[in-house]
């Protein structure tokens, strides 16, 4: 049993890794179409990506839309999460469920809805329209991350701050917010990624004007399978790896910085 499971496990690792591994060499390929292993290597498709407004514009659109979605999502979700985690009130379970609904509805259904709804508002094919839609879709994920953080927050710390003379507002600013900051940042990151990756709704409502990167990639794969996709994939990979590795790196850098700071510098005046 054990042995069989182990062999299967190793095969699965290969299955999961293979598609991730194959994209990187493809991006350096000099073949005109999909071919693996590549006949030769060059940086042509990187050059192509960084010189083609057909690719750069959707990339920029996606960044703008994801950033705006992130901000709007956090403005809405942070207070709501405090309400739902810290208070018990009539109708709370309904509100909890409502928060999760955008995650339960298939995106294709929302795409149809937004196509018509934003069309009526003349917001279809605009950045603003996509941002409005993406914010709805990002709410549950941001909420899940943040509420997990908030539930783990030790409220004795707030009592301690108050006993030490901090008013509720100052308690929030000096204690609650700084301690929750990492959680809020991760929550915001999730909202950003949710928007940046979102494909289906963007395909239907972003149009030419607000075309997002996933939409452009979808169209490109559907029509001609432009090898530039491999370049974008590799770049996105690099970002993901950076995001996964960066926290550990940052920690060690900070530790080193701190250990070099003599105690006197902290205790001394100003």
């Amino acid at each position: 049993m054990n042995r069989l499971m182990r062999i299967l496990g190793v095969l699965v690792v290969i299955f999961i890794a293979a598609p991730l591994v194959i994209v990187v060499p493809m991006s350096f390929s000099d073949a005109r179409s999909l071919q693996f292993p590549p006949p030769g290597y060059w940086l042509g498709y990187y050059y192509a990506f960084f010189n083609d407004w057909g690719w750069l514009r959707p990339t920029w659109n996606s960044i703008i839309i994801a950033a705006a979605t992130m901000v709007l999502t956090m403005i809405l979700v942070v207070p709501a999460t405090f309400a739902l985690v810290r208070y018990r009130f009539y109708g709370k379970s309904v509100a909890d469920l409502m928060m999760m609904m955008p995650l339960a509805v298939p995106h294709i259904v929302m795409a149809v809805g937004y196509y018509s709804f934003l069309g009526d508002l003349r917001l279809v094919h605009t950045h603003f329209g996509v941002i409005l839609a993406h914010t709805c879709l990002a709410v549950p994920i941001a909420f899940l991350v943040l509420s997990a953080n908030l539930k783990g927050f030790d409220r004795t710390l707030e009592r301690a701050a108050q006993s030490l003379g901090a008013s509720p507002v100052r308690t929030f600013m000096h204690v609650t917010l700084p301690i929750l900051r990492p959680g809020i940042m991760i929550s915001a990151l999730f909202a950003f990624i949710q928007s940046f990756d979102e494909t289906v709704v963007a395909i239907f409502i972003s149009g030419r004007n607000a075309e997002t990167l996933p939409r452009k990639m979808f169209d490109s794969i559907r029509q001609e399978a432009d090898p530039v996709i491999a370049v974008i994939s590799t770049l996105l990979f690099a970002v993901v790896i950076l995001a996964l590795v960066a926290p550990a790196g940052w920690k060690s850098i900070r530790k080193r910085l701190r250990s070099k700071t003599p105690p006197a510098a902290i205790l001394g005046s100003q």
Partner: peptide, 12 residues
């Protein structure tokens, strides 16, 4: 001044 059961020191 209060000393709490779990100390409640500010971790940050």
């Amino acid at each position: 001044g209060i000393v709490f059961q779990n100390y409640a020191l500010f971790p940050h």
